[in-house]
Design a binder for these strands. Structure first.
Length: 616
RNA sequence: GCGGGUGUAGCUCAAUGGUAGAGCGCUAGUCUUCCAAACUAGUUACGAGGGUUCGAUUCCCUUCACCCGCUCCA
């Protein structure tokens, strides 16, 4: 996954980023701060271009998406409703022996699957059938042998004499070590149970897990000058929740009808356990998120007479009224890949990973990860989740305010819908509801009853044109995308000069649309005022339309090379022919192309019409 | 948070218990001609803090950052 070669490549990219002013370590003169990065002059342009292009393709070029820019700090209850407050504060334990980090809530489950754990359970059950507990040094040794292979760090294996002595002593008087199975497991996992303090075994090696320590992944602060429990608040861990929370306002003020989306670009903050891989996992990062709200499939069926199949490729075309969530989901996956293609990434650079049903978060119906082949591994760039109505329902529940929409057309359509269709829709809805309740572990009868009640309430509302919209969420990380673009653009060109000296130059082959500087303008020599004046005039001609870098210092080849390293796709050179040394070439310049060094001669007047289409 | 590695000009790499050096880059200049040309001049460093020592970049401790693993999923 991360062989030396790819690590070396990453180091080169990190060093180039700093050297050329793309990305610096944050707070560097103070020694830096782990998990935070700053964008320098070129990086700031690059990032701005990427965000602008996303916004243009998502919002400006569509009729069905509008923008939002919400605050970073919001009402703390939002994070209760969204589930972040619970899922983002998992207690963690470390194994004292193998040093692995384990989520405390998952440790039990992970351990239960292990053979050696079942061995321990069986032993406990047998031993406690009689009272006092029937064990011997021999039987404990046999147990140690049986667990040795897969749980070498189990205290019973590692420190057999001490643990055996303790267990035998406590067996004679039915001591606490034998009080229940859990206590027994902890006892055989603990070498030195001073003051009765025992440890849970590590799922990886049977070693001692430390007491759970809280790992709060959310940045916590306080609003108002006085710090107290009453004014705790959080920096948002994602931008999406603001969209849900403002859904009703946007819906009512934007004159949009479903289906439609709300887009937002902004900072988010997570106290990552381990920030790693340059900017890939940062503690402060930027997201580009779209929440695209759609009608539930039952409403689509009532309105359009059916729901389009997701298997016939319709999602590659333009949206249709009969699209249900599956088609919309696939549509957005395709749209996002096309966006990446439009800024210079290729379809082959990605892996589309459709999460397996058992990997899905509880709120998601389907999630596709768009993974990019980074030098350090294939890693997620964007997740596109079909989240059902989970989020809006949660906020409805927690805020007490309705997140339902009213759909006049749906009410009329439902009124004229024939009874067999209605019955079929209800039956399908109810059975899928029941299935998901069963999956949550609710007993059969109970699930049947709950599903019937919920389904009935749902259709009563639907018949009147009321429902909570469902949502498709394409959520992309800006900083990850910038990193992907840097990795993709990075090229080393080795050349050998007449003296046989080889030299490696770096070229960043950015797509012109995202390049921080679009064109470099150079007078061939700087000691001729006429050349300089002409070059400055060309700079001023182009500047209103694109980022231009004027450079007159050093040899011309050096200036080209410097722009190559900055990823500038075009160079314009003003020479003596431009000034009219050869009359037929007067007012023409050399246009140089970064990736192949190709040069062409064209009139100054043609520069803008030539370059503009390439950079837009 | 735990374990392993790294830390000397912007970059690549030297040397040393007593004055830190080179190449490249960068800045300025010379040059009528297109891919880091040549020449001249200039520029810049021992990650931070503490200790041992007459004296520490070098030895010791602490800390910080980065890289690699354990977790994370924008």
């Amino acid at each position: 996954m991360s062989d030396p070669k790819s690590t070396e490549l990453m180091e080169k990219i990190v060093s180039l980023s700093k050297r050329r002013g793309f990305i610096y370590p944050s707070s560097e003169v103070y020694g830096g701060i782990n998990g935070f990065w700053d964008y320098g002059p070129l990086g700031a342009e690059l990032k701005r271009n990427v965000k602008d292009l996303w916004w243009r393709s998502m919002v400006h070029y569509r009729d069905d998406v509008v923008g939002l820019e919400a605050t970073i700090i919001m009402h703390p209850l939002i994070w209760k409703a969204s589930g972040h407050l619970d899922t983002f504060s998992d207690p963690m334990s470390t194994c004292r022996q193998c040093k692995k980090l384990v989520r405390s809530d998952q440790a039990r489950e992970m351990v239960e699957d292990a053979d050696w754990f079942q061995e321990l359970q069986r032993f406990y059950q047998q031993a406690t059938q009689s009272s006092p507990v029937a064990v011997s040094a021999e039987s404990l040794e046999k147990l140690a042998q049986a667990t040795r292979k897969h749980a070498p760090s189990l205290a019973l294996v590692r420190a057999r004499e001490a643990v055996t002595a303790r267990l035998l002593a406590s067996a004679a008087n039915n001591g606490p070590d034998w009080a229940d199975e859990n206590q027994f497991i902890r006892s055989v996992s603990t070498e030195n149970a001073a003051a009765g303090l025992t440890h849970f075994p590590c799922p990886h090696c049977g070693g001692e897990l430390t007491e759970p320590r809280p790992f709060n992944l959310m940045f916590k602060t306080h609003y108002g000058p006085v710090e107290s429990d009453d004014n705790v608040c959080y920096l948002r861990p994602e931008t999406a929740q603001a969209i849900f929370v403002q859904f009703k306002n946007v819906f009512e003020t934007s004159r949009q009808k479903l289906p439609f989306g709300i887009a937002q670009v902004g900072k988010a903050f997570r106290n990552e356990v381990t920030p790693r891989n340059f900017t890939f996992r940062s503690r402060e990062f930027e997201q580009m998120e779209l929440e695209f709200f759609i009608k539930p499939d039952e409403a689509v069926a009532a309105l359009a007479g059916g729901v389009a199949s997701a298997s016939d490729g319709a999602w590659q075309g333009t949206p249709q009224p009969d699209w249900g969530w599956e088609v919309w989901h696939k549509y957005w996956v395709e749209q996002r890949v096309r966006f990446y293609e439009s800024i210079g990434l290729a379809r082959e650079d990605f892996v589309e990973y459709w999460q397996k049903p058992d990997e899905l978060a509880h709120y998601a119906r389907a999630t596709v990860d768009i993974l990019f082949r980074f030098p350090f591994g294939v890693q997620e760039l964007e997740g596109i989740a079909a989240r059902g109505d989970f989020d809006l329902t949660q906020h409805q529940k927690f805020s007490g305010k309705s997140t339902e929409v009213f759909d006049e057309e749906l009410r009329s359509a439902w009124a004229i819908l024939d009874e067999p269709t209605r019955t079929a829709l209800r039956a399908r809805h109810e059975s899928s509801l029941k299935e998901s309740l069963l999956k949550k572990g609710i007993a059969g009868d109970e699930a049947t009853a709950q599903a019937a009640a919920a389904s009935q309430a749902y259709f009563e509302k639907l018949a009147k044109g009321h429902y909570v919209p469902h949502v498709i969420e394409p959520s992309a990380g800006v900083d990850r995308l910038i990193l992907a673009l840097l990795c993709k653009a990075y090229r080393e060109v080795v050349s050998t000069d007449e003296k046989g000296k080889t030299e490696t130059r770096v070229v960043l082959q950015f797509h012109p649309r995202i390049a921080p500087i679009k064109v470099g303008v150079f007078p061939l020599l700087k000691n001729k005022p006429e050349l300089v004046a002409k070059a400055l005039a060309v700079r001023d001609l182009l500047r209103p339309h694109m980022t231009v870098f004027y450079d007159e210092s050093g040899a011309i080849g050096r200036r080209y090379a410097r722009q190559d390293e900055a990823g500038t796709p075009f160079g314009v050179t003003i020479d003596f022919d431009t000034l009219g040394e050869k009359p037929e070439l007067a007012d023409t310049v050399t246009l140089r192309h970064r990736d192949d060094g190709r040069q062409e001669r064209l009139p100054i007047a043609e520069l803008l019409p030539r370059l503009l289409p390439l950079i837009r």
